[in-house]
């Protein structure tokens, strides 16, 4: 079996060995796919393997913990560089996301959760394009599911507490002032929205964006490398160079998407919380 470009690339990255020479143009191109997102580091193919995204997640937790403790240990009236950065991010989450969406009355309670979600998702997303790490953690579905599960449990518990019991909570899902024959229809729709559609789309949106973005970069870089080295003629080589250059443009586009998705994830979490605590509706 002749080694494919991708497997030779991955073995090259993993073990530091040189890619096997494959005679130039003789191999067929294997387009990057789902299998490129499974990178077991320790534990082989088992379900309990310690994978690359887990390592990235642990690194991000370490960095966030260290950074926020170090930056807020000695708080000064005139902020230093680090304190300024933390204050900017905190102010953004507090004012733009929490206060505007949840409202001035209740937003303080949820600030720690929203701030943690935002910084966590943002750092993990940014790892998708930071050299040497280059793996967006959220492109494995398990990680967005866990984050969504936290939000899901919190907004249901908060809603049950705010409405005072299961029956009033279910009742509050249907907007008031509807004609009688619409109520059963709306009830089914709202139930599906609260219990299925919201969590599923929240998890899938983050996963899908990170997965698609990383795959796009893989296609441009791996495909460009293949065209350049194995294309066989000058035109395809030039196309390979163009593809490589375009991957740089796409990297900046990814930067935008990563910020946007962290923002959207947090704002939707805040929106669901706001729905749970609001008196009307």
């Amino acid at each position: 079996m002749s080694p494919t470009v991708l497997s030779s690339l991955s073995t090259h990255l993993l073990s530091g060995a040189l890619p096997a020479a494959d005679g130039g143009g003789g191999t067929s191109f294997v387009s990057p796919g789902v299998s490129d997102f499974f990178w077991p580091l320790i534990g082989g193919d088992s379900n309990w393997a310690f994978t690359r995204p887990s390592a990235v997640l642990l690194i991000s937790v370490g960095i966030l913990g260290w950074f926020f403790i170090a930056a807020t240990r000695k708080l000064t009236v005139v902020p230093g560089k680090r304190q300024f950065l933390v204050e900017q991010v905190y102010g953004f989450v507090r004012n733009t996301i929490a206060k505007d969406v949840i409202g001035t009355k209740d937003f303080q309670r949820f600030l720690p959760l929203l701030f943690t979600l935002f910084t966590m998702v943002l750092v993990n997303n940014l790892f998708g394009i930071i050299p040497l790490v280059q793996f967006p953690t959220m492109s494995r579905i398990a990680f967005p599911i866990v984050l969504t599960l936290v939000v899901y449990v919190v907004y249901h518990v908060v809603g049950l507490k705010a409405k005072g019991g299961v029956i009033p909570y279910i009742k509050s899902m249907v907007p008031p002032g509807l004609p009688g024959w619409v109520i059963p229809l709306m009830f089914v729709l709202e139930l599906a929205t609260y219990f299925v559609i919201r969590p599923v789309t929240l998890a899938l949106r983050l996963f899908g964006n990170m997965f698609a973005g990383h795959l796009l970069l893989l296609v441009f870089i791996v495909g460009g490398e293949y065209l350049l080295l194995h294309g066989g003629n000058i035109g395809l080589g030039a196309a390979g160079i163009a593809s490589g250059l375009f991957s740089i443009v796409m990297t900046f586009f990814e930067l935008l998407v990563e910020f946007l998705q962290a923002f959207v994830f947090t704002i939707l979490a805040a929106l669901y919380l706001a729905d749970a605590v609001s008196e009307e509706h």
Partner: peptide, 18 residues
Amino acid sequence: TIAFTGFALTEALAILGL
């Protein structure tokens, strides 16, 4: 806020497709 919420809800369709 409203624009990004609407954007997120619309985008969900494309992500489901993917």
